[in-house]
Structures are given as C-alpha cells and as structure tokens.
C-alpha cells in the first residue's frame, strides 16, 4: 500500500511539470469562469479573464507549482495569440465599408489616446514615487501584448511587469466601460468599440465582438492603429526624454 501511494505521489509530482496539467488547469478554470459570466448576463464586473487569473494564481500558490512551470505548460495558448491576431483581418475586411466613413474621427481619437494613455499612467505613478523601471514598464500599458513586449524590450522595461500590466489594463477597460459610457453618454456601440480598442486592446476587442461584429471591427481597427502608432513613436519619445 505504501509503495502504491509513493508511486502515485511520484506520478502526480512529475505530472505537475508536464504541459497537460497546466493546460488543463487554464482551460477548466476559464470554462468555469465563462459559465459564471454567462449566468450573470455577461456583466463586465465578472470578466472571465480576471476571475480565472485570480483562481489560477491561488491554485498555483496553494499547490506550490512555480509560475514558470505554469507558463511553460501554456505555450500553446500563448502561441494562438499570433494566428488570432492575423484572423482579425477578416472582420476588419467585412466591416471596412462602415469603418471608412468614420476614418477621421477614429484616427484623431487614436492619436489622442495613444499619447494620453502612457502620459497619464506614467504621470500618476511618477507622482507616487515609482522607480524608473516601473515607470518604463507602465508606458506601453494600453497596447496589445505582442507590441507591448516588443516596446518593453526596446526601452529596457521589465517584460513580466509590462505583460501583467497590459493584460490587467485590458480587463480594467472592460470593467470600467459601463461607467465610462454612461458618464460620457456614448451609446453608439461602434464608437464604443473605438474607445475599447484604444484603451483595452485585445481584451476590450474581445468584449466588443460579444456585442456585435461591427463594434468588434471598430475595436480591432482602433487597437491596430494605437499599437502601430505607439510602436513607432514611444521608443523614440522615451529616448528623447533621456531614458
């Protein structure tokens, strides 16, 4: 009996290091969070990524599995972000005739948002005495993850902090969206998509696709423009400021 238990113990130990366990953990927790989200009429307040991230972090801490092991196990999930980004070309193409008519307002708002988002976030953290490294990691917070990681590498920020901050900015964007659209009295779901794409990148865009494919296409457009503009300007801006 003892040897059987020992075998089982050894087996579960090695299982924790295999991709199967970490991958299944992500998918199971996310499926559960999706179920809860749908039960609550897709309320922004219980965003499935936010709920899942907290639950998974707790489970990892309790079971003593390192974050590195968990991330290694989830390479497949992370990889799918690439082809999914490419796939956004299709809604962009399908809704292009509508997007074209709003090109100027979208462009102006993107330019404003892409400059205001890092300036305001870094300004607040600077006022609260954060270190240079933290300030740099906060700068690309509103752009989509692959662009943000690229920028973080270029400006010498901490990639792990940047990635976490970016994902949580996206979640916050979704959580805050009902309040923001109520306060600004912005009822048009397409224009709401623009605001979400600028401030909450892929996480916000995903939320917009739940509302409608036109809203999602507007968000995709705004997200792509914000990311591209930030990637082209932020590294030079930071260099010019003397970092």
């Amino acid at each position: 009996m003892d040897t059987l238990l020992q075998d089982l113990h050894n087996y579960t130990d090695s299982l924790a290091q295999k991709p199967l366990f970490g991958l299944l953990l992500t998918l199971l927790v996310y499926q559960g969070a999706l179920w809860l989200y749908n039960r609550c009429n897709r309320s922004a307040l219980i965003h499935p990524v936010a709920v899942s991230a907290v639950v998974i972090a707790l489970l990892l801490k309790i079971s003593g599995i390192s974050y590195q092991d968990y991330v290694d196990a989830n390479q497949l999930i992370y990889f799918l972000l690439g082809p999914t980004t490419v796939a956004l070309a299709i809604p962009l193409y399908n809704e292009f005739h509508v997007l074209r008519r709003q090109a100027m307002p979208i462009l102006v708002t993107v330019l404003f948002g892409a400059l205001a988002a890092p300036a305001i976030a870094v300004g607040i953290a600077w006022g609260m005495g954060a270190s240079d490294e933290v300030l740099l990691s906060l700068a690309p917070k509103s752009v989509t993850t692959p662009i943000a990681i690229g920028i973080a590498d270029q400006i010498g920020a901490m990639a792990t902090l940047t990635t976490g901050v970016v994902v949580f900015t996206g979640i916050l964007g979704v959580l805050l969206s009902p309040a923001v659209f109520w306060l600004s009295r912005l009822g048009d779901t397409r224009l709401q998509g623009v605001v979400m794409g600028i401030n909450a990148h892929g996480v916000g865009t995903a939320r917009c696709f739940e509302i409608g494919s036109d809203s999602g296409a507007f968000a995709t457009m705004a997200m792509g423009l914000t990311g591209t503009f930030t990637a082209l300007t932020l590294p030079y801006l930071i260099h010019w400021l003397g970092y």
Binding site: A116, A130, V134, V180, L186, D188, V194, V195
Partner: peptide
C-alpha cells in the same frame, strides 16, 4: 500602490477623455 493607481485611474481618465472626444467627432448611425 503606484502601479495599481496608474492602471485604474490612468485607464479610467484616458477612456473617459477618448469617449468624449469620439462622441463629439463621430457621427452616430
């Protein structure tokens, strides 16, 4: 505290400002 304040307040302020801006510039359908 600085990271959380920057994320929450920063995102809220920028979202609100960009929502106001696009409501003024964009035409609703």
């Amino acid at each position: 505290p600085a990271v959380i304040a920057a994320m929450v307040a920063g995102t809220f302020i920028t979202m609100l400002l960009s929502a106001w801006l696009i409501r003024r510039l964009g035409s609703s359908h």
